[in-house]
């Protein structure tokens, strides 16, 4: 399978925050790549944090949620903050439906808000 370059995440860096735009229907293998990509990026760029923009995500199942969570945990262990942005109502209700534990996640409203949260003291 040659999908190594096909997963649709695009990113840019502002104020030492990496904004990862995640689009489409991500399969679990692609989520694995996303994990590698974000963690590698975080190390290389001397980032302060990562904003995960989920607005383009059509469907989020529990395996995909688990990977996103693991990304946040890995980043935290590297001393980086992460914020989730752009959770659409339909995705929010699936999260509620599968009883996902979202209490310790940092959710932001927009990029500005995310940059501020990530830049703030712990």
């Amino acid at each position: 399978m040659d999908s190594s370059e096909e997963y649709s995440v695009s990113g840019s860096v502002t104020n030492r925050c990496y904004i990862a735009c995640i689009n489409g229907e991500l399969s679990s293998a692609q989520m694995g790549q996303l994990y590698d990509e974000i963690v590698r990026m975080a190390e290389k760029r001397e980032l302060r944090g990562v904003i995960m923009d989920l607005n383009g995500l059509a469907v989020l199942d529990s395996a995909a949620f688990c990977v996103l969570r693991k990304i946040s945990v890995a980043l935290a262990l590297m001393g980086l903050k992460s914020a989730w942005m752009g959770i659409k109502p339909a995705i929010a209700s699936s999260l509620v439906d599968f009883g996902a534990d979202v209490d310790d996640l940092c959710i932001c409203l927009n990029i500005e808000d995310g940059v501020r949260l990530i830049g703030s003291e712990k």
């Binding site: 999908s3 229907e25 399969s27 679990s28 059509a58 339909a90 699936s94 439906d97």
Partner: peptide
């Protein structure tokens, strides 16, 4: 393979939408 999953998910949304499901139900 992984891409087959994305296709199934995408097509299911289309079918649910055409059957009259609301956006929230379609996503579920």
């Amino acid at each position: 393979e992984e891409n087959d999953q994305a296709t199934a998910v995408f097509m299911t949304r289309e079918m649910a939408k055409n059957a009259g499901f609301s956006l929230a139900d379609e996503v579920m």
